[in-house]
Design a protein around this nucleic acid. Sequence first.
DNA 1: GCTTGACTTCGAGCGCGCTCGAAGTCGTAG
DNA 2: CTACGACTTCGAGCGCGCTCGAAGTCAAGC
Lengths: 134, 134
Amino acid sequence: MPEPSDALTIREVAEKTGITTHTLRYYERIGLVQPVPRAKSGHRRYGEPELRWLDLLKKLHATEMPIRKMLEYARLARRGETTIAARRALLDAHRIEVEAKLEHLQATLGTIRKKLASYDRALAGRAPDHALSR
Amino acid sequence: MPEPSDALTIREVAEKTGITTHTLRYYERIGLVQPVPRAKSGHRRYGEPELRWLDLLKKLHATEMPIRKMLEYARLARRGETTIAARRALLDAHRIEVEAKLEHLQATLGTIRKKLASYDRALAGRAPDHALSR
DNA sequence: GCTTGACTTCGAGCGCGCTCGAAGTCGTAG
DNA sequence: CTACGACTTCGAGCGCGCTCGAAGTCAAGC
């Protein structure tokens, strides 16, 4: 199997993943994505493994993992199965950060909702409560 | 009351809020914070209203409201009570964004946890599942 | 009177994560 | 043979949110 027929062009991948072609190439040149297989023309052909990796990157990105850490993760992944424990550790540390952030976000969202309620009271004609003085 | 005695220096505010003195001045010069009252020496003296405003900014910042929007909000606030409805609208729009982000974050966290579990299975000696191939 | 140190202003610089555009190559359609 | 359009590389530029440092002022203590 010299060239799997499920290969996608960079444009197709961009449409599928929502990552721009510019960013896809950028990720590759910084080493976040391994060199993508090429057609004879030199054009990139993304296969299943690339798509799975991009999916993971999207998740890490969505949870605001900095590129630095994703790179670290990527380098471990390239070194193969012997780094599974290290990758797990990295991911777990990230999980903890995300959980903390989530909690903080929820708490803050709570006070934003309270402020909205106080605006509603003010708009209903009650005495402006002090939280509104600015 | 020419100078309320509860006034804090910029350093004290920095310690209290966790916002650096550099950033406090930066916020003031871009108009995110109204000109802070000064001692005769020209030094800033932060009072209750400033601290309350900074607290609100911290919350908006924690929920990742861009400075642009905070500025919009600040400008409305300066225009007084007639802008309460507009401020409410702005804040509510933000609330909706935060809620969406929170949901997305939770979903993504879920798949991260799954990946961690698959690492654990791999480390326990089972056949590496395909999610680990990179 | 002099030093110390906390403040002041101002403009430049930085780290992050893209984003863009110029210039070139390739393969197919007319 | 030409024109087109989708791709390629590469380096420069950008928007955000600070962050820093130079140079000056002021008040208090020795």
